[in-house]
């Protein structure tokens, strides 16, 4: 008996001595993240930032706090509206402090832990440093990071919340970004009708038109808008006529490669019905304008994607069915989720 205890003890020590310090901090409750079985493994490594109830709640408060902007008017949630799948409903270009207008449309926020880079041009390489761009961009929240950190440190409420989530010590940008990343890691959308059909949920099936739309989707859209995320994460020139007022070179701005001229990230089509307008500059207010673009109005430029170069003809019936299929990608549970909704900040 004694020697079994010794073996057990040694084994415990072995595991203990090799453990990674990614454990949840004492005093916090681990946050259990529900993930779908039919998705690939997340890109974001949460073992470096273990989700806790306190961390997620803090991230949510920060997301909805306009005091993160220079003049305390614009929060993350100002542009990223839950009812629009965290895109900016009805706004072609992003808005910011001082009535400023940005260069691109507000992308929807969901399934971010599966994304390997961020922004329409993929310039941001990690979920944690993503918020740095909107917070400091003069066209968005326009705040200086050092000023923001000292403001948070001067706020007694935030000092307490950061202490609860990350322990003693000054608030620094790493804690700010990790808290926001924890909240963003919970913004996941995988319970649309489409998902229920794919998981063979009892009693759920596509209507005949939705099924027809799915067939069209698979034949004509799915190579870029790849299931189950409905994007392959690549950058492509989809033949949009160049907008001379915006002068937006797209991905080329990041890579300096002329081969990336006018290329933008393929957006996910999940919740697409809820998040107009469409394209990187929000030029289309209606999905039928998008269909028309692909079937008739492709502009030929040297970097045009081979998959759209010869246009994607869509008959009236195909368009109607496609619309009805895309409607099955709406995730009402996500859009109405109480755990993601705006928190009113009064202190």
């Amino acid at each position: 008996m004694t020697k079994y205890l010794i073996y057990a003890g040694c084994l415990f020590l072995l595991i203990w001595s090799c453990r990674r310090n990614g454990d949840v901090r004492p005093g916090t409750q681990p946050y259990t993240l529900e993930l779908p079985s039919n998705f690939p493994a997340p890109v974001y490594d949460m073992s470096w930032n273990p989700l806790t109830v306190q961390g997620v709640a803090l991230g949510r408060r920060l997301f909805y706090d306009p005091r993160l902007s220079r003049d305390s008017t614009i929060s993350c949630g100002f542009c990223h509206q839950q009812f629009a799948a965290f895109a900016h409903f009805d706004h072609p270009l992003s808005h910011g402090i001082d009535n400023r207008t940005g260069l691109r449309s507000v992308p929807g926020l969901f399934n971010l832990i599966w994304q390997k880079d961020f922004m329409w041009d993929g310039g941001v390489n990690h979920l944690e440093v993503q918020p740095l761009t909107p917070i400091t961009d003069p066209n968005e929240m326009g705040e200086d990071l050092a000023r923001l950190i000292s403001r948070l440190n001067a706020d007694q409420k935030y000092r307490g919340l950061f202490r609860d989530a990350f322990g003693e010590g000054e608030i620094n940008s790493q804690k700010l970004f990790k808290a926001l990343a924890q909240f963003m890691a919970t913004m996941n959308s995988f319970n649309s009708k489409y998902d229920s059909v794919m998981r063979h949920a009892p009693g759920v099936q596509f209507t005949a038109e939705e099924a027809g739309g799915y067939a069209t989707f698979q034949a004509k859209c799915a190579s870029c808008h790849k299931e189950p995320l409905f994007t392959d994460g690549s950058f492509r020139n989809n033949g949009l006529p160049y907008n001379p007022y915006l002068h937006d070179a797209g991905r080329m701005r990041i890579t300096n490669s002329t081969g990336d001229y006018l290329k933008f990230k393929v957006p996910s089509l999940r919740n697409v019905i809820k998040s107009p307008p469409y394209m990187h500059d929000g030029r289309f207010y209606d999905l039928f304008d998008v269909f028309l673009h692909y079937s008739e109005n492709i502009e030929q430029t040297p970097t045009i994607d081979p998959l759209v170069k010869n246009r994607i003809p869509l008959s009236n019936q195909e368009q109607r069915e496609l619309y009805l299929f895309l409607n099955t990608l709406t995730d009402p549970g996500f859009i109405n989720s109480k755990s993601l909704s705006e928190v009113l900040i009064t202190d």
Partner: peptide, 24 residues
Amino acid sequence: RNVSGAQTGALDPVNGMFWSWNSG
């Protein structure tokens, strides 16, 4: 460290040595 997310100390972006629009 250019691709590992939020850093601290000398690597804290608060030092003004980090490009936000093109991470690095």
